[in-house]
C-alpha cells in the first residue's frame, strides 16, 4: 500500500495507544512519584539512618565483634550454600533437559515448591526433622551432632529457600538449546565431563552466573527461615539479617541501620550484576527473546 493512501501521511509510525503527550507525561509522573515513595525511599532512608549519628557511630557498629561475627557467619553460609545449590541446579537441569523419564513434571513442581512456601513454614518444617521433637533430632542429639541452633541448620534452611534459583535459570535455556551439540560431542568420543565443560558450559555460563547471583542475594538476606532454626544466639548463630533485628529491638537503631546498609549495598550490587548479565542475554533478556519451553515453570522470578 502506498503511503499516500494511509491516513498517517508522511508519518513513519502512527501514534500508539496512550502516546498522547499529556497522558504520557501524567502517567510517567504518577508512576515515578509512587515508585520513588515505595521503592527508592526505603533505600535512601537506610543510608540516612545509618549515618545519622555520624561516621564514627557507623564504623563503631561495623567494627563491633558481634556485627563482625554476623558478617562472617553470613559469608560462610553463602560460601557453603551457594556452591552446593549451584551443583544441584546444574545436575537437575542436566537430568531434566537431556533425558526423558517418567515423573519429570512432578520433579519440576517439587523443585519449585520453596518459591511458594512461606520461609517461616520452611523453618518450622526443619524443626520437625532435626529438632528434639523431630524425626532425626533425638538421634543426632544422642550422637552429639548439633544441627539446629547452629551453622548446619542455618545452611540447610538457606538451601531450602534457594533450591530452585539456579535450576530455574538453566532449565528453560538448556531446553531451548536441545541435545544435538552434546550428542555430537559424545559420539566423537568426548567423556561426559568433557562434553559438559567444553560444550554445555560455554552456552549456559551467563545464565548460570545469573542464577548464582540471585541465589547468593537470597542466602545472604534470608530472614524468616533462618530465624526459626538459628536460635538467635548473639555472637554465635546470628546472621546479618538476624543481627539487624536484634539491634533494632534493642533500640540501637543506628547500629541496626548500619548493619542493614551492608546488605543494602549487596542488594544494589546484585541489581547491577543482574543488569550486566541481562545484557549478555541471561535471565529476563532471554525470556523475552525466546519464551521458556516449560509451561509448568510457575515462578519466573525469585521470591
Amino acid at each position: 500500500m502506498s503511503a499516500n493512501l494511509t491516513p498517517n501521511l508522511g508519518r513513519r509510525k502512527p501514534p500508539r495507544v496512550g502516546d498522547g503527550p499529556l497522558f504520557r507525561r501524567a502517567l510517567i509522573g504518577t508512576v515515578l512519584v509512587i515508585g520513588a515513595f515505595l521503592i527508592l525511599a526505603p533505600l535512601i532512608v537506610i543510608g540516612f539512618e545509618a549515618f545519622k549519628q555520624g561516621w564514627k557511630t557507623y564504623s563503631a557498629t561495623i567494627a563491633n565483634p558481634d556485627t563482625r561475627h554476623a558478617i562472617l557467619l553470613t559469608v560462610v553460609t553463602a560460601l557453603i550454600a551457594v556452591p552446593v545449590n549451584t551443583a544441584f541446579g546444574v545436575a537437575a537441569a542436566w537430568a531434566i533437559t537431556k533425558f526423558d523419564f517418567r515423573g519429570k513434571r512432578f520433579l519440576l513442581v517439587l523443585i519449585e515448591i520453596p518459591f511458594s512456601v512461606s520461609p517461616i513454614v520452611a523453618g518450622v518444617a526443619y524443626l520437625f526433622v532435626y529438632g528434639l521433637q523431630g524425626i532425626f533430632g533425638p538421634y543426632f542429639d544422642a550422637h552429639g551432632i548439633k544441627v539446629l541452633f547452629a551453622l548446619p541448620g542455618i545452611i540447610l534452611a538457606s538451601m531450602f529457600v534457594t533450591a530452585p534459583f539456579v535450576a530455574r535459570e538453566l532449565i528453560p535455556l538448556m531446553q531451548s538449546q536441545g541435545r544435538d551439540l552434546e550428542e555430537a560431542a559424545t559420539s566423537l568420543g568426548a567423556s561426559g565431563w568433557r562434553t559438559f565443560i567444553s560444550v554445555t558450559l560455554p552456552n549456559i555460563k551467563w545464565a548460570l552466573l545469573y542464577g548464582v547471583v540471585l541465589c547468593n542475594a537470597r542466602v545472604m538476606g534470608e530472614f524468616g527461615a533462618v530465624s526459626v532454626v538459628s536460635g538467635n544466639i548473639r555472637g554465635q548463630t546470628n546472621t546479618l539479617p538476624l543481627h539487624i533485628e536484634l539491634l533494632y529491638h534493642d533500640y540501637q537503631t543506628a547500629g541496626a541501620f548500619a548493619s542493614a546498609s551492608i546488605l543494602a549495598i549487596i542488594a544494589v550490587f546484585t541489581i547491577i550484576a543482574k543488569v550486566a548479565l541481562e545484557k549478555q542475554g541471561a535471565g529476563r533478556a532471554r525470556k523475552t527473546a525466546t519464551r521458556p519451553a516449560l509451561a509448568s515453570n510457575p515462578a519466573e522470578k525469585p521470591s
Binding site: 521503592i39 538476606g221 539479617p241 546488605l263
Partner: peptide, 23 residues
C-alpha cells in the same frame, strides 16, 4: 527505573522492614 523494579527482590526482607518502619 527498570532496574530498580527488582530492588524488592534483591533487598533482604528484614532490611526492607526496618526501612519502611522508619519511613
Amino acid at each position: 527505573v527498570d532496574a530498580m523494579v527488582d530492588l524488592p527482590f534483591a533487598l533482604p526482607t528484614a532490611v526492607a522492614g526496618i526501612a519502611l518502619t522508619a519511613l
